[in-house]
């Protein structure tokens, strides 16, 4: 019985992916139309640019019981807004270290650059990230909030 519920937990791993409108969302779309297989544990949030993602959003995602957060945007130099992802790269460094100091496993947060042509890379990223988060198990921050989010999901 206990084993069964553990297995369910593992399957229930939920990952929030912030995808930039111009590259990574199109990349995810390409992965879809190309029929690349990847795990269904990901919820997408399309944003206009990864530079618009406040660290608060990531904190909020973990607070609401997400087990992993992926930020995916255009490669450096390819940003639709020229330099939007520079800010993402800087913020990410600080945020990752802050969460590490707090005691949240490093593997739960990831930054990837996925272009609109990289459908296969997108599927790869989701596969490896899901595997990594599954190995870590459900987030220690899951609590009463997580149950609430379940209803809405």
């Amino acid at each position: 019985m206990a084993e069964e519920s553990k297995k369910n937990d593992e399957e229930d791993i939920r990952i929030l992916a912030f995808l930039c409108n111009w590259c990574s969302y199109a990349g995810a779309d390409l992965a879809g139309v190309s029929r690349f297989q990847y795990p269904p544990n990901v919820l997408d949030v399309r944003v206009m640019c990864t530079g618009t993602i406040s660290p608060y959003f990531v904190i909020k995602a973990f607070q609401e019981g997400m087990d992993g957060v992926l930020i995916a945007g255009c490669h450096i130099g390819d940003c639709h807004y020229l330099k939007g992802n520079y800010m993402t790269a800087k913020r990410f460094q600080v945020l990752r270290e802050a969460l590490k100091f707090l005691g949240l496993e490093e593997g739960r947060l990831r930054l990837e650059w996925v272009s609109a042509a990289e459908g296969e890379k997108y599927a790869d990223v989701i596969r490896s990230f899901t595997e990594e988060v599954k190995a870590l198990g459900p987030s220690p921050l899951r609590g009463k909030k997580a149950a609430k989010a379940e209803v809405g999901a």
Partner: peptide, 25 residues
């Protein structure tokens, strides 16, 4: 109220303090 739920003490862990820590960076 979207980041820190009002009327809850102690405040949400860890968002309240980590938000302040990030702002202080």
């Amino acid at each position: 109220p979207h980041l820190v739920e009002p009327g809850v003490i102690p405040p949400d862990f860890p968002s309240f303090h980590i938000i302040r820590a990030l702002d202080m960076t």
